[in-house]
């Protein structure tokens, strides 16, 4: 499978008052298309930082971040925003849907921001159908359960057919039933449509489903397993 994203000798420093904290020091990792990978590690290990960099939410202090063959480290804020809009999908722990928009509109927003002009309606409906919310188009987040909100979030992340979906603790705010359902949907997207998923999570169910676990500790890559594809 082709390399879809790469961190090459990446270093990230954060200024904290007078001190500088180094979240990542010299990390290199390759992500291939279709991966279902978990980034693991304790608090402060740098896994969130690594995912932020891959997600083009931030830029490295040193090294390069290649996305689909392009070094995004050199891009300005607005250009970075454009890349995110089109190529990266996000799923958050707290769902983070826009409260004043309906499920339909939340998903449609992603397409608008990606600059898609035609055929939005069909794509939005399909995305929501795929997560089983075809009947809930007009509901606002306040009218949806936690599990349903997260499904909308998934639809929102996937509707634009991104290169990578970054999921930050997607099941943490859900009960086990809903969590399992969400996981199943993501797994299906990955298997059926080949969507690349990168997780940051402690949820053992998610870890169990991952084919690769990248472990970070103190800003360094300490372990990188790969499990062979289960049939």
């Amino acid at each position: 499978m082709p390399v879809i994203c790469q961190l090459k000798s990446v270093r990230k420093d954060y200024p904290m008052g007078d001190l500088t904290v180094t979240a990542l020091r010299d990390v290199s990792v390759e992500i291939h298309a279709g991966e279902f990978t978990v980034f693991s590690g304790p608090s402060g290990s740098g896994k969130s930082t690594a995912l932020n960099l891959i997600g083009c939410l931030d830029r490295p202090s040193a090294g390069s971040v290649m996305l689909e063959g392009r070094d995004v480290a050199t891009l300005g804020d607005e250009a970075l925003g454009a890349v995110r809009a089109r190529r990266i999908g996000f799923i958050f722990q707290s769902f983070n849907l826009i409260p004043v928009l309906t499920a339909y509109e939340n998903v449609e927003l992603a397409l608008r921001l990606a600059g898609v002009k035609d055929g939005r309606d069909a794509r939005v409906k399909k995305a929501l159908n795929d997560v089983g919310l075809g009947e809930y188009l007009d509901r606002r987040p306040a009218q949806l359960s936690g599990g349903q909100q997260q499904r909308v979030a998934i639809a929102r992340a996937l509707v634009k057919q991104p290169a990578i979906v970054i999921a930050d603790e997607p099941t943490a705010n859900l009960d086990s039933t809903n969590g399992a359902a969400i996981l199943a949907i993501m797994k299906e997207m990955n298997t059926r449509a080949g969507v690349t998923f990168l997780f940051s999570t402690h949820d053992p169910d998610v870890v169990a489903q991952a084919r690769r676990i990248v472990t970070l500790h103190d800003g360094l890559l300490v372990n990188d397993t790969s499990r062979p594809r289960a049939s």
Partner: peptide
């Protein structure tokens, strides 16, 4: 909320 939208690609 704004951060999310920015993450989603909302321009400045």
């Amino acid at each position: 909320e704004i951060g999310v939208m920015r993450a989603m690609g909302l321009r400045r």
